[in-house]
Each structure stands twice: as structure tokens, then as C-alpha cells.
Design a protein around this nucleic acid. Structure first.
Lengths: 146, 146
DNA sequence: GCAGATTGCGCAATCT
DNA sequence: TAGATTGCGCAATCTG
């Protein structure tokens, strides 16, 4: 579940193609068909050249199938669970986001208020404090009206 | 994909059970087997009382199967896509969250600075301006340390 | 090389 | 009736 690596679409390997679907086929069993009669060009490492030996009757086979079916079920359950978790994560993050945005709004407002206070104060100072009289005192406007 | 509702485990209906798995057969078509010869007790709305007529050879059957296979593939692709999208959404939301947190940090700092300025100014005023002497001037503490 | 985990696929039952 | 979903089993791979 880590490296997808390169994987074939499900069959078609060393000269083997899946012929299925639309066959009278009761169910699946890809029915492997050798494209070339025998050793097309690749040498098989294993001695046994017989790959088509599922032997449905074999107890071994049934055991493996059963185990695999179990593993498959497990894997799918996990997968589903993960998807659900991810979805929930989205919801949580969305809520968190809203909280943060609200906080930002609040802080912004606070800042705005403080800044206004500052400006007002600065104006008051300018109005009440006689500048070093370097020039005209300017229009004598006092009181409100900034 | 919305209401799981109650759904049967796959077969076993009006007196029909699936016999599969571990059968010798090369393929395992569920092989529907009527538990009772005919009308067990339920009346079937449709006229044809034959439910077990998949008729693999039927063109109709193959057509339906093929269409369904297509639909299945489509559905699964969508499902997968959706999961991916959800995952990506998580990533986006996480980033957004970080941005917001950073902004909050900044705003908080700004506010802090402004507040400090305010306090300092207030102290300066208290130190430089003689209160109307209605009471004790209070402890003569000046300088830093707000 | 084996055993468990994944993944693509087709089937059938349901749901819509 | 037809397409969409979903649980399930098979086989091919991937992984450790």
C-alpha cells in the first residue's frame, strides 16, 4: 500500500491474455490462453512451466482462496473506514477554519477600535497643545469635529 | 450510495440458495437451486414464475451484463475520484488553517503593541499632568514598567 | 518462495 | 426498464 509502482491492468503477461467476458462463462476464471505455443522468448526461472494449475479441488487451493477472501474483506473494510475518516477530517477542519476566521474578525475589530482611539487622541493633542509657534496657529477650531 | 437500508448478503431468496465455493466446478456460477420445486407460497407479481433464467447464452443477458459492467466501472471510478478529492480537500483546508493561524498571530502581535503604546502614553499623561488634586496623587511611581 | 494486502474485474442483488 | 451501488469471490500483483 505504499509504492503503486507499475502494475499491469490485470493479466496479459509473458504472452498470456485474458479471454473472458461474453464467454458462456458461468462466472470468472479468466481462462488463460497462451498467445504463443511455448517459450516465446522469456525463460522461466521456476522449473515448472505449468502455470495453469489452480486445481479447484485441491484443498490447498480452497484454503488459499478462503484466506484471500478474508484478506480482501479486511482490506476493503479498512479502505472504507479510511475514506470515512478522511471525510470527517474535512468536517473538523472546516469547523476549525470557521473558528479561526471568527477570531480574526474579532481581532481585526479590536485593532480597528484601538487605532481609532489613537487617532482621536492624537487629534486632541494637536488641538489642545500649542505648537512651538513657528507659524500661524491655524484656524482656531476646537472642541469636537476632528 | 445513500441508504444502506437492509440488503441481503447476496442470494438466498424466495426459496433459492446459492451453492458456490468449494464446488468442484471450474467456474462457479452461483448455480441457483430451487429449494422448492415451484410456487412455494409466495405469489409472484410477474407472470413468468421462472426466476432462474439467466440464460448465459441469451444476447439479452450478455447485453445487460456488459452494460452493468460498464456502470460498475464508472461508479467505481467516481467513487475513487471522490475519495481523492476529499483527500485533497483535507490538504487545502490544512493549508488554509495555517494561513489563518499565522494571520491571527500577526494581528495579536499588532494588538499587543498598540495596547502597550496606550498604556505607556497613559502613564506619561499621569506623570506629566497634575490631577485636579482631589486626593492623594497616589504612589509616585513613574518610568517604565506599566 | 510464501502469506497477507491490494487492486481490477465480473456477477448478482438492490436501490433509484 | 435502465443505470447506479454494493457485497462478494477470483486472480494477478505487490509487499515484507
Amino acid at each position: 500500500m505504499s509504492k503503486p509502482s507499475q502494475q499491469k491492468p490485470h493479466a496479459d503477461q509473458n504472452g498470456v491474455s485474458v479471454i473472458q467476458a461474453q464467454t458462456s462463462g458461468l462466472q470468472q476464471v479468466p481462462q488463460l490462453v497462451p498467445v504463443s505455443p511455448a517459450g516465446g522468448g522469456k525463460a522461466m526461472p521456476p522449473s515448472k512451466s505449468k502455470k495453469s494449475n489452480p486445481d479447484k479441488d485441491s484443498d490447498e487451493y480452497r484454503m488459499r482462496r478462503e484466506r484471500n477472501n478474508l484478506a480482501v474483506k479486511k482490506s476493503r473494510m479498512r479502505s472504507k473506514q479510511k475514506a470515512q475518516d478522511t471525510q470527517q477530517r474535512v468536517n473538523e477542519l472546516k469547523e476549525e477554519n470557521e473558528r479561526l476566521e471568527a477570531k480574526i474578525k474579532l481581532l481585526s475589530k479590536e485593532l480597528s477600535v484601538l487605532k481609532d482611539l489613537f487617532l482621536e487622541h492624537a487629534h486632541n493633542l494637536a488641538d489642545n497643545v500649542q505648537p512651538p509657534s513657528t507659524e500661524a496657529p491655524g484656524p482656531a477650531q476646537n472642541g469636537s469635529g476632528h
